[in-house]
Amino acid sequence: MTHGDTSPGPGVEPFEVFALRYAVHRGRRQVDNFIGADPHEAGSDLSYYIWVARRSDRVFVVDTGFGQEAAAGRGRTLLAQPADRLRLLGIDPARVEDVILTHLHYDHAGTLGDFPHARFHVQDHEAAFATGRCMCHSVLRQAYDVENVVGFVRALYGGRVQFHDGSAELAPGLWVHRIGGHTAGLQVVRVWTRRGWVVLASDAAHLYANLHQRLPFPIVHDVGALLEGYQMLHTLADTPDHIVVGHDPLVASIYPGLSSSGDIVRLDAPPRPLA
């Protein structure tokens, strides 16, 4: 699967794709965003997003964000509940059938209870990582929330988890691909849109600087896999402008917004050039 694949096949309807910003984290340092950075220099803020891919026959929600308790506990500013952001697009979380969890960190797999009828798509390696021996190490479990993981296990026992191992086509024009690196089972989402193949990188690349300068984010399971993942993103996307990173505030400003706040932007439209 490379960017040489120009189409998912004849007659496949393209998806609309949106990024929905629901929280921010301000006052970061460079060392918080890049391995080996100067701890005295100020760094980029982070924005927190969930994503939507929808067309006439299917709606996929990508990640479920976090709520007020996690925001308060981790010093993040919650702008809105992720479920409320979805309602602005006319999507009722209680009716969502498919949620792709790129990984199980607190900011990507919280609020699962707001999706009571969803099937959760996750990689085998991620579930094993989040519930296995690596969680004996505090540095690896710090970005997980035990109650979120317990909620995921409850959904599993309720028959609402679909596992994937590597690459899988969930619908014509929508794939997941395991990259790992940031966590053992992180997956990205490749979506066919009116402008071609767009890749929702999630935490395979937090910021554009991580991706373009090959500077790894400090929360990492396997640095080598993370660096290799940057190249995989370029392989999966039609062009670098088709890669949407996971936490960069620039996403909310370079893509056309549905409102002046920039909290919901369209990713199936081309971005403005990065400054």
Rank of each mutant, 00 (worst) to 15 (best):
Q231F: 06
L79M: 11
E228M: 12
N33W: 06
R190A: 05
L140I: 02
V161P: 03
P10V: 11
M232L: 15
F60V: 03
S260N: 04
P256S: 04
N210P: 02
L274K: 11
A205E: 05
D63N: 15
L250F: 00
C134L: 14
W51C: 01
P249K: 10
L88D: 14
A225I: 00
F34H: 11
L250S: 13
D5A: 10
D268H: 14
L207T: 10
A168S: 13
Y157L: 13
D124P: 01
R76I: 00
V198Y: 09
H103W: 12
L236I: 08
P8W: 10
G110P: 04
F115V: 06
D248R: 07
W197C: 06
D248A: 08
D238F: 02
G27A: 11
S138T: 15
R266H: 01
Y208C: 00
L86I: 04
P14C: 03
M232F: 01
R160W: 01
D114N: 11
R272N: 05
D32C: 00
T64W: 07
T131V: 10
H164E: 13
Q142H: 12
Y49N: 08
R28A: 11
L170Q: 07
Q213E: 14
V191C: 03
N33P: 05
I264C: 02
R76K: 13
V153R: 10
A209H: 12
V251N: 12
A201H: 11
P14R: 05
W51T: 04
G43L: 02
E126G: 02
D32K: 00
R154W: 09
M135R: 11
S7E: 11
S47F: 13
F152E: 00
R160K: 13
Q142G: 03
G132D: 07
G173F: 08
A83K: 07
Y48L: 07
D263M: 02
F34N: 01
A127D: 07
R195G: 04
F18L: 08
L20N: 03
P82L: 06
V265F: 08
S261D: 15
V31L: 14
Q213M: 10
A83H: 00
T193L: 07
L86S: 04
L20K: 07
Y48W: 13
H108Y: 11
R21W: 04
E147C: 00
D248P: 08
L215N: 04
I91C: 04
E228Q: 14
R272G: 05
A109W: 13
R85E: 14
I264Q: 06
H164C: 06
A80T: 15
R214M: 02
V146D: 14
A19V: 02
F163W: 14
D268T: 02
A127Q: 07
D145H: 12
Q142A: 12
Y49F: 15
G196W: 04
S56C: 01
Y230R: 00
T6Y: 09
Q187N: 15
S7Q: 08
D222V: 03
Y22Q: 05
V176G: 10
V62Y: 11
A53M: 06
P218G: 06
E147A: 14
L46S: 14
L101N: 08
V198K: 03
D238C: 01
H121L: 14
L174T: 08
H212S: 10
P8I: 15
C136S: 13
E126R: 01
G158F: 02
H164L: 04
T2I: 10
F152L: 12
D203G: 03
G65L: 06
P39R: 03
W175A: 08
G173C: 07
Y106H: 15
E126D: 06
T77H: 11
V251W: 03
D92V: 03
P39W: 00
